[in-house]
């Protein structure tokens, strides 16, 4: 099992053309014109910055109301958590669980997992590289599902426009919440998973299997 970096090969990130390249790499892919890099630039600093921004936005996203419901004479202000509790109390357990996963669990796990990946990569750890790669792939896949609540609120606001009888308005938490999702997506996109393997010796790979 040879790694591309050891034999001077590099693949274009966009068209996957494999080419020989001398260090330092400058220039673009001869086939599609994409910029060629051996590793994503500043692949620890950038994700860390996005991660800190996400963690900061996480607080207002969860404490401020995300949705205001007027249903005369009732006036309801919901945060993400109280919205989920409401779904649960209405008997929609499956949906409550879905929204809880998408809006609470996934962002929290993303923050924690990204932290673990950055910490272990910065320490040049050779701990469970396969598992960490898997973790990164999960992060990539689930990342955008947290946009669920933003879309639900926008849809509800669009449909419930019944004048003085009932209306639903987005609350101030919507923007920081969308910000958390965006920042965690950017964090995982700017992290380079090859950094996980750059400090793993050829032997330690199978010891963990």
């Amino acid at each position: 099992m040879t790694r591309a970096i050891e034999i001077g090969l590099v693949a274009c990130e966009s068209c996957e053309l494999v080419m020989r390249a001398a260090d330092p790499i400058t220039g673009t892919c001869p086939r599609c014109g994409e910029r060629i890099d051996r590793r994503k630039p500043n692949s620890l600093g950038r994700p860390l910055a996005f991660l800190i921004a996400a963690a900061a936005l996480y607080v207002p996203a969860n404490t401020l109301p995300i949705m205001v419901t007027e249903q005369f004479p009732l006036h309801r202000t919901d945060t993400i958590l109280s919205g989920i509790a409401f779904l649960w109390s209405e008997g929609s357990w499956l949906l409550a669980a879905l929204v809880f996963s998408a809006s609470v669990l996934v962002p929290m796990l993303k923050l924690a997992a990204m932290g673990v990946l950055l910490f272990t990569s910065a320490r040049r750890s050779s701990w469970r590289p396969r598992g960490r790669t898997k973790l990164y792939r999960v992060l990539e896949t689930v990342g955008h599902w947290s946009m669920l609540d933003v879309m639900v609120v926008a849809l509800l606001a669009a449909v419930v426009q019944l004048g003085r009888f009932a209306s639903i308005e987005p609350g101030p938490a919507l923007i920081p919440f969308a910000g958390v999702v965006l920042m965690t997506m950017l964090a995982s996109a700017s992290f380079d998973p090859r950094a996980i393997w750059d400090h793993v010796g050829p032997r330690s790979v199978h010891e963990r299997e």
Partner: peptide
């Protein structure tokens, strides 16, 4: 070299 594929997660050449 068109017949090679490099893993974008761990940089292994196939």
């Amino acid at each position: 070299m068109g017949e090679l594929a490099i893993c974008r997660y761990c940089d292994t050449v196939h």
